[in-house]
């Protein structure tokens, strides 16, 4: 190891700021994890502690004893997020393929349209969406949260940008000469080429769907259909008012899957974020 040659105060400040920010990012979650293992009495004595205690399973018992069923929430969130992600990446690739490979009259117009509607948030159309779902009796149906992801303009845009340099037209042409049908070519040749883009977009789509609160909150009224974020919002209610340990415990359960996903895939996620911005 070489000793730092150009050690300076400026450099030191940089490290101090970075380390302080890192603590700021981690601390709230650390307090959450520690307090999830402490009894309500211990938390009332001193709400900050860096040492875990042994009350985790007791807190769990209190938590699940009061209508909080993390397994059901986990299952529901899993179904919705996986379904929505699968639909989003598949159909966005398909739409991007239509935009890149084929020359059709309305193509440029369609792409301009996609750019224009990219920013319409689901929230501003939520009243009409809710009324529509209510009328066709889909309010407690997961499909109401899964099917809309077939039309994901921002993802189509990303897939198209990825496809233009990555997709060799020659391969498609030779598949055609071999007599492959267009749809077959897309499924068997294009999808594998698109794998890196699909993986990145799948992560973000999954996380976004998993974290979504607004639409599930207005659509799902049946307790057995609640998603994880709705379950979390229950922790604010009166029934947990003084059960501090149980609240932290519930919060921990909801972030645990995200922590695992994040630390396994952080490299790809960070790279994906960088790609998602305006490219050079």
């Amino acid at each position: 190891m070489k000793v730092e040659k150009s050690f300076s105060v400026y450099k030191l400040i940089q490290y101090i700021v970075c380390i302080l920010l890192a603590i700021l990012s981690i601390m709230p979650f650390y307090i959450m994890i520690v307090n999830a293992t402490r009894t309500t009495y211990e938390i009332q004595q001193h709400a900050i502690s860096l040492v875990p205690s042994g009350a985790f399973f007791n807190n769990m018992k209190i938590l699940t004893g009061k209508s909080f069923n993390p397994l059901i929430g986990f299952r529901n969130s899993m179904i919705i997020s996986c379904g929505a992600t699968a639909f989003a990446v598949y159909f966005s690739s398909l739409t991007a393929y239509a935009l890149v490979v084929y020359k059709w009259k309305l193509r440029d117009g369609f792409f301009t349209f996609i750019l224009a509607v990219m920013m319409i948030p689901a929230q501003v159309v939520s009243i009409g969406f809710y009324q529509f779902m209510y009328q066709i009796h889909m309010t407690n149906n997961f499909l109401a949260l899964i099917l809309p992801s077939i039309a994901a303009p921002a993802m189509v845009f990303f897939m198209r940008q990825f496809m233009i340099p990555a997709l060799p037209i020659d391969i498609i042409n030779s598949a055609r000469i071999d007599g492959a049908r267009e749809f077959y070519t897309f499924n068997k040749i294009v999808i594998p080429i698109m794998k890196p883009a699909i993986a990145t977009q799948a992560i973000f789509s999954f996380v976004q769907s998993w974290n979504n609160l607004f639409l599930p909150l207005i659509l799902l009224t049946d307790k057995n259909k609640y998603t994880m974020p709705i379950m979390v919002s229950l922790l604010k209610g009166d029934i947990y008012k003084t059960e501090y340990g149980a609240i932290y415990c519930g919060l921990l359960l909801t972030v645990l899957p995200l922590f695992i996903v994040y630390f396994l895939l952080s490299k790809y996620i960070i790279a994906g974020v960088a790609l998602g911005g305006v490219k050079e």
């Binding site: 990012s25 974290n211 919060l251 995200l258 996903v261």
Partner: peptide, 15 residues
């Protein structure tokens, strides 16, 4: 580490 809070459920962070 700096990016981590971004992927955590906003509902959880609020509570």
């Amino acid at each position: 580490i700096f990016y981590m809070p971004n992927i955590i459920t906003a509902a959880t962070v609020a509570i």
